[in-house]
């Protein structure tokens, strides 16, 4: 058992358990807090994959900005009490969970059947180099500068659209 595997197991367990708890909690505030835990453990998983820049961006953008926004909206509109898990339309929910488990088993079978680890083997030096902020910034501002600018305009239009939508009174 190397440290890498120990870290992977810890982060993967935290990730899965907090995801499942996020889906099953009745109170939306507790759900949002479990989603923060999930995003934090995903940032840890990104670190085990040598993606330092994306791990930091995950914590800042997702766990910081987006989840604060979610919590803000939850506390602003204070949604009414939702019926407990599996109380309302239980057959439909059991059916949905069964379908999801079935599809997951299919995906897992395909992943294990195709044996991707025979085709790709991680070279640590190349993997570390690919995740540095230097390499990502170099690619982003040379080869992918047009999509980068387009994303800037997308964010601007989203900010304006959110203002317009939240301001307008529907009659």
């Amino acid at each position: 058992m190397t440290l890498e595997i120990v870290l992977f197991v810890i982060f993967a367990l935290v990730c899965l358990v907090s995801g499942i708890l996020m889906v099953t909690r009745v109170n939306p505030v507790i759900s949002a807090l479990f989603l923060v835990v999930n995003f934090g453990s995903l940032a840890g998983l990104y670190l085990t994959l040598n993606a330092q820049f994306i791990a930091v961006a995950q914590v800042i953008i997702y766990a910081g900005a987006i989840m604060v926004f979610f919590l803000f909206v939850i506390m602003l509109i204070n949604p009414e009490h939702e019926k407990r898990f599996l109380e309302y339309k239980p057959q439909l929910k059991i059916f949905a969970v069964a379908i999801a488990v079935l599809v997951f088993l299919q995906i897992a079978y395909i992943i294990l059947f195709s044996k991707p680890s025979e085709g790709v083997s991680r070279e640590v030096a190349a993997s570390v180099k690919a995740g540095t902020i230097e390499q990502i910034g170099r690619e982003l501002f040379t080869k992918y500068v047009l999509p980068f600018e387009a994303v800037g305009y997308l964010l601007l239009s989203a900010a304006i659209g959110a203002l317009v939508l939240a301001k307008k009174k529907f009659k």
Binding site: L49, F53, I54, V120, R122, A126
Partner: peptide
């Protein structure tokens, strides 16, 4: 990470 290529990131 496994392909050593930063396009995915």
């Amino acid at each position: 990470s496994y392909l050593g290529n930063s396009i995915g990131q």
